[in-house]
Nucleic acid binder design. Sequence first.
DNA 1: AGATTAAATTGACCACGGTCACTTTCATAA
DNA 2: TTATGAAAGTGACCGTGGTCAATTTAATCT
Lengths: 195, 195
Amino acid sequence: MTKTVTKPIQKRALATRDKLLTAAKDLISKESFEALRVEDVVRAAGVAKGTFFAHFKDKDALMEQIIGARMAELIAETAAAATPKDIPEMVELLLPLIHFMTSERYVFDVIVRHSGAAAISDIGPIATQFDEQIAIFARWAQKAPYRPDIAPELVGEGISAFFIQAIALNFCALNSRQALESRLTSYLDAWLCPK
Amino acid sequence: MTKTVTKPIQKRALATRDKLLTAAKDLISKESFEALRVEDVVRAAGVAKGTFFAHFKDKDALMEQIIGARMAELIAETAAAATPKDIPEMVELLLPLIHFMTSERYVFDVIVRHSGAAAISDIGPIATQFDEQIAIFARWAQKAPYRPDIAPELVGEGISAFFIQAIALNFCALNSRQALESRLTSYLDAWLCPK
DNA sequence: AGATTAAATTGACCACGGTCACTTTCATAA
DNA sequence: TTATGAAAGTGACCGTGGTCAATTTAATCT
């Protein structure tokens, strides 16, 4: 009978992970998400390349952490604000988040790729934020109340779907931010206030 | 004053492009979209690597062609069918397309990445198919008529948004196809038949 | 203290998408 | 027929994400 396996996470490992995250955020702020190179991150963090992949499954996982964390901040601010009293106000509350999500094509791609929520296992920071978002939308909808005919959760999912669609259309077209806002407003109006 | 530049596309080039596409489709059918390697394509087509990139901007562009073409077939079949008389029938008509779009995570990612429509220039095969899809949805909605309060185009965009959302949720969760169908049905019911 | 073992880290190495200076082929002009 | 120039094609080379056998470090047992 062998001894019980001990495997406490060493402080050293946490520190290394932190160095990697800090270095990455720093490089991103100087350049962009798109331009981030793993080699630059490990050089800045002063560790070997293999160490990076011991802490993050792949480059995408690092991106998910950083982008998810930023989304969490923005969503927390949105949630803290007073419930919007109409749709234009709702759109305005979403602007900071929209601004971040559209700041780079690459960022949006990462977000979409990880946006699927409702997973039991394997749920990452971005999916978590989408859940959170949907819950906030649902709460907003309940206050008004918009669409009393359907479940609040469903109202929230719809808002989320239109939110994504409005942003996606923004990228592949020659549309300005203004177009995005007005498109999102029409979507939400049609979704929340059917005549 | 120099002579007018002549630049007809040679038959040779068309043949090469065709060889590349055929080889790629063949390899995909044997393996998967995900597993396709450019090196394998050029080997099978009997051309050099550089030739590949003279015909396709990047690997993604090849994927877009092939996936877009397959979507076009499926959408044409859908369009040819009789207008669905209710939402379950609508969902059923969409099943072949859903099946293809969910056949591989990779395929769905490529589709989403290129789904933005409405671009004047730079509009690729997948974006074209989305436009087509939205137009079909709009026509369906007009026949019934669902949502007479809003523009048919908007109805179509909404269907498209929910379509994507339903599929996206399917990937990051432990959801079966059945869940996808019922989710899509609730979405469409809420979107098209507000009480 | 020394032995033991798993966690943490290392860096040479690989896989694969993409580039580009150069060569070959083709169509037209002289 | 030959000369000319652009289109088509080539393949050695590069950048970058990711792997893994080997090494170092830290915690625990005797």
